[in-house]
Amino acid sequence: MGYKMKTWILAAVAVILMVLYVVYGLTGNLDYILPRRLLKLLAICLTGGAIAFATTIFMTITNNRILTPSVLGLDSLYMLVQTIIIFFFGSNMMVLLGGTVNYLISIMCMVLFSLVLYQFLFKGEKNNIYFLLLVGMILGTFFGSFTDFMQVLIDPNEFMIVQDRMFASINNVNTDLLYISIGIIVLTFIYFMRFYKYLDVLALGREEAINLGVPYHYVVKRLLIIVVILISVATALIGPITFLGLLVVNVSYELMKTYRHFYIIWGAVLISIIALVGGQFLVERLFTFSTTISVIINFIGGLYFIYLLLKENRKW
């Protein structure tokens, strides 16, 4: 079976799951329930797509299959930035300005941070992936703990007010930010199209890319900014899911068996949507919220991550 066929099959499965998610058990006040379900579905699809897309690009520019933006702690950092902003400006300000301002400031901070990250990832002529992985894991944990710490410091009453609006999870999707997020994703995607043609060549490695005339530093820096924006958007909408990106991109590579990014990206995006929508369907309608999908995905993804580490370790 060719990769075109596989892409269509994945798309079909994704659509079926989406329809199922919306119509299954649809009773009661339709005017209320239907729009809510649709908004949530949209948020989940956007997030799943953004994570898969960002992770594919990230793996290509770093030339590896285990380092993802989430494993490096980018989504934890996003949460931290958001918390710091609330900490300094107070909830009054936040409620006044709405989540949107916090959101935009957070994204800008993340873009600035990506320039620092760039120095780490790409300035040296050779990099040790395992060292980066270690640093990323430590920083990720640090960001997470520090976020909790700051949240404890914030006045509990104030925190209650902002918590709901600022910190999303998959059962508490931040639909306020949905429209602006769609805007950001569309703009980012349009910007990305200029660099799309370089992805396949970048996958050959830095030296081959330079040999073939890719303006390497220019392109990679901009792709990294795109990655960071997408991860920020995803985290704002449904919160961090550490191992989702790792899982779906690797599965896409395994399934598609091609190097063409067009199919790898579509594959990863669709698998991601299938995993999130399908998983959420099971969690909401069948398990009736006794567990969360982040837990399931991080469990499976975590196992897969360990498997990848062991497998890659044998090669190097």
Binding site: G205, E207, E208, N211, L212, G213, P215, Y216, Y259
Partner: peptide, 19 residues
């Protein structure tokens, strides 16, 4: 970069493509 890539090319000593 693109002009240079039409003028000069290189085969490296080691070529590990894992695609």
């Amino acid at each position: 970069n693109n002009e240079m890539a039409k003028k000069i090319s290189i085969l490296k000593q080691t070529n590990a493509v894992n695609l």
